[in-house]
Design a protein around this nucleic acid. Structure first.
Lengths: 212, 212, 212, 212
DNA sequence: TATGAATGAGTTTTCATTCAT
DNA sequence: GATGAATGAAAACTCATTCAT
């Protein structure tokens, strides 16, 4: 049985996969179900119904529902990560980075990426064996954020006081917390307000980081 | 029928309650189960087993498992809130407030308050009718945080740029996100690191807030 | 414990009862619940809620839910029986009797008597120990109907061919069947149509019974 | 998913069905349970025990206990209906029809058809969402009876006075009522007596219908 | 590869009834 | 007489997973 327990994290789906292999169809169905029905509604049955295939197919291809869920998280995470890398790489000033991050966040919101991430993180509490795996999938995001922060503070007055890794952890935690709360009370405006506030502080902060 | 559907949020438990009324015993069992078995493990059966009482008692006293869970959240929330109010009220300088917050966080960690809050917030995604209720219970915390922040920035250079309410939302979201991640990967050290970093920045920030 | 298992059938409630004794209040609540919530909805809890008294009172006074239900059936049956006796006693011709029966049926419909009877008869299938007791409560109605039929056919051409007792059983069965079906599909018009048809046949039948 | 929510009413089971498909086994078990344990005793558990299969199989194949019950009613109804159609089609005179109906009734009694029908009709009062569905399944029987009556009264003196549809409703209601009472007090003799009386009236009635 | 059928363990909730006070 | 609390048994239904084909 082709179980796939410890699938490499954030591996971009290989080129040998046909455009819509069965595995992809299943992942797409899982993504859609997670997005629309929430973690609680994402049973094997629900995914199969959504993708119009047989329930057992999930277990044939992924061994476990958990593993499908993780693969789904991997895929959306990998997709978004490449997008983030591209965009943030091009942004140089603090201000610019804030603008870019805001734009990306709005994209995430539209694509369902946010929903799926927060459903997975939160849901993994309810499926205890999922927890560590999900956290592992957050690691690359922390690393990426750490890079962005390092770039930013190197040479600034903050360089000494700030631990980039720790701050990166905080940023990712904040992102998740905001997602979670926004998701729970169906209110996007507070997250939006947060980005706007950050935007307003951009010019404020710029001189501290040696941008002008 | 002693249902308690719309229990007042954050009502501090009155002194007239006997030391261990049945309702309290049930809430305590729910708290312990939430803490040790996680949200997923907190079924009516599990709670009853833990508290060594009959399953049906839960429904007799709370009507619904959800309602018991909310009551549990209310109780722990109320307990902690009064503690936070007392302690933060006494802290005056930024530095002081950071120290106090760190101390309180460590208390939360020991008492299981953190575990229970994050289990509830995250788990409520998987019990959709719980979501709004849980968010509503976060509101007082946002309000409280807003107060602390307002006190802090009034008269400082940040007063104009910062929206206290939005920042309070961010702080609560950050707290939840940190809890969630720490809880998921069983690793408390990163949260600890975050507080230490904040502590290190304390003296740094003090002058910006007009403390000396 | 004052159980009341084999309560005399159709005994009119004695004069020693206060106008609204507790037992009566309970019976009234049971009647109302049976009428509005149906047999399935008539749990001890539902009755107690409706009458605004404690659940346990039912068991104190009647020993068993079944016994309360039977007492309720007795009461409504006794009330209606006296009414039927009075009215049918005054009707002399076939035609007259049909008119009277139609009028009484409409009364039954309004008072909820019909609902309660059919709920009880049908429901007693679902509470097997109730069955024979309920049937026993139908006996007086069969006897009463037998009397009416006997009066009618004595001296008519049917006297030899018809067994009054058997026909009485059929009439009661028909009444129940009609109630049941009308109740189930919420459609009173067919029962009404039946009475109208009987009414139309009255003058037709009259000569056969020696009325003119 | 082989749910069968809106199964065609009274569809005769096709010959292509294997002798004992799982669905049939389940229906047979439901039938037997309904017959022997009564409606109240026909829980999913009881059916599964009787058929020696897993409880969940019921829900896999029928989605809902109600739906299984309805399918069971459909099957027995369809079986009997074809038998009634055949037999009554061959009976021409009133007398003949009465004899045939009596014979069929005795068959029903032996097969458990009667028990199951009355359990279902009465029981559906206690499962409110079942009511309309069960009534709908009575409709074909009313229609069939109407046909028999129409044949009978056409050209007779009753043609003007009798509404065949209304009378058919009454006949079906009577049949149900008789079943119900017989079933409740475990006494078949009164129903038997009724048929005997009808038999005795046959020659009496014949001339009125133009038979000789 | 794929699937329909099957399963065992689990879920929340409701019920009639009992009992100590 | 009356009550609040407690209980054991049962209900319908859902779940992830397995298996024979």
């Amino acid at each position: 049985m082709p179980k796939q327990r410890a699938q490499p994290v954030l591996k971009v789906v290989g080129e040998d996969d046909l455009p819509t292999s069965t595995k992809e169809r299943i992942i797409d169905a899982a993504f859609a179900t997670l997005k629309d029905e929430g973690f609680a509604g994402t049973s094997a049955r629900a995914i199969a119904r959504r993708g119009e295939f047989n329930q057992a197919l999930i277990f044939y291809h992924f061994g476990t529902l958990n593993d499908l869920l993780l693969a789904t998280l991997d895929k959306t995470s990998a997709d978004r990560m490449s997008r983030y890398r591209d965009s943030m790489g091009k942004a140089t000033s603090v201000d610019d980075k804030i603008q870019t991050a805001t734009r990306l966040y709005r994209e995430d919101l539209g694509s369902g990426h946010i929903t799926v991430i927060s459903e997975m993180v939160a849901g993994s509490l309810a499926r205890p064996d999922l927890g560590p795996e999900v956290v592992a999938r957050m690691e690359p995001w922390i690393a990426f954020t750490e890079g962005v922060i390092s770039d930013l503070i190197t040479g600034s007055i903050f360089e000494a006081a700030v631990n980039a890794r720790t701050l990166a952890f905080a940023v990712v935690a904040l992102y998740l917390g905001v997602d979670l709360l926004s998701h729970l009370d169906q209110d996007k405006s507070r997250a939006e307000g947060l980005f706007q506030m950050a935007g307003a502080m951009g010019p404020f902060l710029a001189p501290m980081f040696g941008n002008d």
